[in-house]
Design a protein around this nucleic acid. Structure first.
Lengths: 340, 340
DNA sequence: TTGTAAGCGTTATCAA
DNA sequence: TTGATAACGCTTACAA
C-alpha cells in the first residue's frame, strides 16, 4: 500500500490537483463545500503531505543539523534532548552527527550536512578544532549557524554556553567559604574557550577573597585517563599540597574521585572535591563530590530556538551574541565541613 | 550563493542536463572526453547532487527513523552511536525520536516518522507499550521495522537484544560460586520481555546449582526512585535476609548501591552487589558493584545492519529472527570474596 | 470558484 | 554519443 498523494484525492473527487492543494491549505478562494469534501476525504484515506516534495519546491528541508563531538556523553545527549524538544515543536527534524573530537571528521561531517541541505547548523566544535574554515564556508552559503557549549570567538555566530566563569567563581568561592585555602584547579587543554572562562572564574574568586594565585596548583591534562594520575600525584607532592580539588571538566571530576579513593585520601576530611559535571551521574551515585551542574538541556533548547529564529526570519547578520545560561551549584558533604 | 545544480553545469558547458547527469554517473554511453569535461567542471564548482530531488525521484529518503524511550540515557545513546556508525557508512542518515516511556507519544512519533517518509524504522518500545497496532500499521505500508533491546513477541520483525537470559545466568552463577546462597532479584515490571528473560536466567542458575527458588527474594518496582527504598527495607527484614543483591536493571543497580550505603551495609563484606548496567558508569566511578555490561553499541550496529539489509533487498518477510548479543560480566571486589 | 501549466533537481525513456 | 521530454508530489501564477 503506497502513500496517498494529492493526485489520488483529485482523481477520486474529480477535481484538479491544484484545487485539492488549495482546499487542503484552507485557501479563501475555494468554496466551503469543496473544502469540506476534500478535507473529509483526505482525512478518511489518511493523506499526509510528502515533505520531500515540499522541500524540493520550497528549497528547504525543515531539518536541523546537529554536530557534537560525541553522542554517548551525558552532556551532549542531554543537550540533544533539549534541541529535539524545541525542534519538533516547531516542525523541524534533527539529524545528529559526531565529529569524534577530530577536526578532519568535523569537516567531513559539515560537508555531509550541507549535502543533505540542512536549513541550519548547531555545532559544538571538537577539541581539535583550531581552524574554522569549514564553518566560514557554509556561512557564505547563507546557512545559519549557532554554536553551543564548545564555541569559538573566530566565528561570527550566536553562541550559547553555560556561564563557565560564574560557575567556576561560585565553586571556588564555596571552597574558600568552607575554609579551604590551597585549591587545585585541573582542566583540559587551555586553548579551549570554556577552559579559559573557568580558569578566569577561579582566579577572580581567589582575588576577591584575597588568596594568592599559585601556578603550581593549576594543571592541564589531555583526554586520556593515564595522563591524569601523574598530575594528581604531582599535586600531592607539592611542599604545601592542595586542601581542595576543583576539577573543571566532567570526566576529570570522576577520575579525581577514583584517584583520591585509590590513595586513601578521605573526602571531605582531608580534601574537598568539587567538579563541573552532569546531573545524571551526580544524582544517581550520590558521590562525595559537590558539583557545578551544567544546564545541558537548557543550552540545547536555547540554541535550537535561536537557530530556528535565524532560519525563519532570515534577518541578515543578527550579530554575534553570546547567551550564558547559569549553572547550578549542588553542595554535598564533600565540601560542607569547615576544616579550620 | 545558492547550491549548484546540474542545470548550471549544462548551461556552462553547453550540454543538456541529461548528458551531464549521465556523465556524472559515468554512464558508458558518454564519450570519455565529455565525461572528463563534466567531471572536472563539477569538481571545480563543487557540485553536490541534491538528495531531496533524488528522494523524490526514487521514492525513498535514505533516512532511518530511530525511536527510543529516552536519548539522555547511557544505554540508548550508546546504541544510537552504533546505529549512526553503520548508517553513515551505508549512506543513510538517522532521525532520532523519543517516546518518553509513553505509548501515546510513541504512536505520534511513529506517525511523524512515516510522514517524514523514513525508509525503515528501528524501535525500542516504551515500557508502557502493550499494544502494537501502530507498528503493525506501518508494516502494512511495507516499511521494514527492526526492534532492539525492548522488543515484543507480538510483532513479526527481526529483534536484536542483549542475551538477557545468559547475562542473568552468568551473574547468578558468579554469586553462587563466590559463596552466596540467598540472592535477591529486583527488576522493573514483569510484563516486559527483558525482565522475563533475566528472571528466567536467574532461576535457571539456581536450579543448576541446586538452590531453592524463593518468591520472597524476587521483587518488581516501577521507574520512580521512591518506590525503591521500601523494597530494599522489606528484603532486609526477611527472617533470612539476602546475602547478595542482583539488580536486573540499570538504574536499580545504582539506587541499590546508594541504598546500601545509606544503611551502612558493607559491600562486599556483608552482601554482594551485581547489576545490569552500562559501561560508562561502571568504568568511570569504579563502584563496588560487579556488572553485566550490556553491549549497547553492538546492539545498535547489528540492528542498523539488519534494517538496511531489509530496505535494500526488499525480500518479503525474511521472517522473525532474534539475534542475541552476549553481555560481558565484569567482576569487581563487590563479589570477589568468599564469605563462607 | 476551479483548472492548466510551469517549476523545484534529478533520472529514465525515447528519439535523433 | 547526445538531446528533448516526462515524471516524482507539491505549490502557484495565470487563465477560464
Amino acid at each position: 500500500m503506497d502513500a496517498v498523494t494529492i493526485k489520488d484525492i483529485a482523481r477520486a473527487l474529480n477535481l484538479s490537483t491544484s484545487t485539492v492543494s488549495r482546499a487542503l491549505r484552507g485557501s479563501y478562494e475555494i468554496s466551503a463545500e469543496t473544502k469540506r469534501l476534500v478535507m473529509d476525504y483526505a482525512e478518511r484515506i489518511n493523506y499526509q503531505p510528502n515533505p520531500i516534495a515540499l522541500s524540493l519546491k520550497e528549497n528547504r528541508s525543515r531539518v536541523l543539523g546537529v554536530i557534537v563531538p560525541q553522542i554517548a556523553n551525558n552532556f551532549f545527549s542531554q543537550a540533544i534532548n533539549g534541541i529535539e524538544a524545541i525542534a519538533y515543536n516547531r516542525g523541524y527534524h534533527v539529524i545528529i552527527m559526531q565529529s569524534h573530537e577530530s577536526l578532519e571528521r568535523e569537516v567531513l561531517t559539515v560537508q555531509q550536512a550541507m549535502a543533505r541541505r540542512v536549513d541550519g547548523l548547531l555545532i559544538s566544535i571538537s577539541s581539535q578544532t583550531n581552524n574554522l574554515a569549514h564553518l566560514h564556508a557554509i556561512q557564505q552559503r547563507n546557512v545559519p549557524i549557532v554554536m553551543f557549549d564548545r564555541v569559538s570567538a573566530e566565528l561570527d555566530a550566536p553562541k550559547i554556553v553555560a556561564d563557565n566563569f560564574g560557575g567556576a567563581f561560585a565553586a571556588t568561592e564555596h571552597l574558600i567559604q568552607t575554609g579551604r585555602r590551597r585549591i587545585a584547579f585541573v582542566a583540559i587543554p587551555p586553548y579551549m574557550a570554556i577552559t579559559q572562562d573557568r580558569l578566569a572564574g577561579y582566579k577572580a574568586a581567589l582575588t576577591q577573597y584575597g588568596l594568592p594565585y599559585d601556578d603550581d596548583l593549576v594543571r592541564f591534562v589531555g583526554f586520556q585517563e593515564h595522563e591524569f594520575d601523574p598530575v594528581i600525584d604531582d599535586l600531592l607532592r607539592l611542599s604545601t599540597p592542595p586542601d581542595a580539588f576543583f576539577m573543571a571538566f566532567d570526566r576529570l571530576a570522576l577520575w579525581c574521585m577514583t584517584a583520591l579513593r585509590k590513595r586513601n585520601i578521605a573526602i571531605p576530611e582531608q580534601v574537598s572535591l568539587i567538579g563541573f559535571t552532569n546531573i545524571s551521574v551526580a544524582e544517581l551515585l550520590d558521590p562525595p563530590m559537590s558539583t557545578v551542574v551544567q544546564p545541558a538541556q537548557e543550552i540545547g533548547q536555547t540554541a535550537a530556538e535561536r537557530l530556528i529564529e535565524l532560519i525563519e526570519l532570515k534577518e541578515k547578520a543578527p550579530a554575534t551574541s553570546t547567551v550564558k545560561i547559569p549553572n547550578t551549584l549542588i553542595v554535598r558533604e564533600s565540601t560542607k565541613r569547615k576544616t579550620e
